[in-house]
Amino acid sequence: METPDAAVAEAIKASGESTLEKATAKAKETIDQLFNVSLNVAVTGNTGSGKSSFVNALRGIKDDDDGAAPTGVTETTMEATMYTHPTMPNVKIWDLPGIGTPNFKAEKYLKDVNFKNYDFFIILNSQRFTQNDIMLAKEIRKQKKNFYFVRSKIDNDLRAEEKKKGFDEQKLLSKIRDYCEKNLEDVGEPKVYLISSFDLEKYDFEILQNTLEEDLPDHKRSALLQAWPVCSAESLEKKIKFFQRMIWAASFASAGIAVVPLPGLSVACDSSMVLLFLSRCYYSFGLDEGSLSKLSEKVNKPHLKDMPKSKLFAAMKDKVFTRVSSSAALTAITTVELLFSLLPGVGSAVAAGISFTTTAYLLREGLNDLAETARSIRKEAGLDIA
């Protein structure tokens, strides 16, 4: 481990500030954004376009799970309905009524659904985009917010064509994309994202995710990165790197070094901050029971849920809350000593209090442990070939 002074100097450098006081202030702001900044995603489009299934997919749940947005041929969204992300309560996905229905005319649609509530709009359609979609996009642009066209149910299109002679998946996808984009020429040169809500790893879902990250301000990007489903090895690694960049701020916050003069820096650790940080990693990497169950079912490998994992993973699986809230201290794992006992190389020095250096070490080791567990699960699932 680094010496306390060297570790703090490195953390100050990571903050981009010049002094301990400024770095501490920035750490508080960063941690608040990490755990508390809201993100409101609006999903709209024609009735029957698969909005509810897409909402459920963004939340990482199946259509028949408890709390899922209702789907089916008889289900029609009649009012803006908010669905909280199951492990990120500050992220909310809104299932909006279908535009152009008798009750929701395009010209007054945005007022009806409380336009100002949302950070961006996803305009969904399972066939061709209509004049109502174009009108809506133009009005959103006037209000200086972003919209994204998503062509849903791509898996249905492919199944309908795959038995035909000369079937070529890539040619069909290009044909669908070109057709949609040509249909939307009135709004400039919009990009259309082809998506299957039942298989986010395929087609354009990750491209959409990357575009959203580029377009969102930094504090909103933090919420998106934590909540968005893991759809590839690249998306998992992006999440890991994101949390690695946050360690300096969590170390400042959990060790409380703002009130501790240098050198020395030996203070009691705020175990709830450490646990909250690692719990966010746990859920964001898709290690919770719901995510693992969905993955094992998808790849038809039931043993994924029960394969041997680290002591840290086991402790979190058995004891952390099913929903992480930053408004209350986590009490599920009662002491930081337990976490130290699960990670190698720390020892029992924690009993009397720990330094900033040890806090940062604990966060790094815990993050690396959970990251390796997530990688091994994806490898065992056959999703990422080494």
Rank of each mutant, 00 (worst) to 15 (best):
A57R: 02
T44A: 15
L278V: 04
S232D: 04
K311G: 11
A14I: 08
G345W: 03
S272F: 04
I240N: 05
S254G: 09
Y193A: 13
E162V: 05
P97T: 09
D270V: 05
S197I: 10
L216M: 04
A57M: 06
E189Y: 11
Q244I: 12
S232K: 02
V324H: 10
N36E: 08
E161F: 15
D119W: 06
A374S: 13
Y203S: 05
E161A: 15
S152C: 01
T71C: 14
K379V: 08
N56R: 05
Q226M: 15
L342F: 14
R159E: 15
F340V: 11
K62H: 04
R280V: 06
L312Q: 00
A351H: 05
S376H: 11
I240Q: 02
N114M: 07
T322I: 07
L184E: 02
S271W: 04
V192F: 07
A352K: 09
V346M: 14
S15G: 05
K142N: 12
G188M: 11
S152G: 02
M273N: 04
A255R: 13
A57T: 03
Y109Q: 06
A268F: 15
A68Y: 03
G345A: 13
S284F: 04
N103W: 10
S53M: 05
S38Y: 10
G67E: 09
T81I: 09
G382Y: 14
A360D: 13
F340A: 10
T74D: 08
E189P: 03
V350M: 08
K111A: 11
S52Y: 01
F115C: 13
S296Y: 01
G264E: 00
V346T: 11
G256P: 03
F252N: 10
I257P: 02
F35K: 06
P261E: 09
I122Y: 04
T130Q: 14
N90W: 07
L96T: 10
G188H: 12
F313M: 10
K26R: 12
E10Y: 07
R375A: 00
Y193R: 12
L225A: 00
N90L: 03
A42E: 05
K238H: 08
T357R: 14
I99H: 12
F129K: 03
S291F: 03
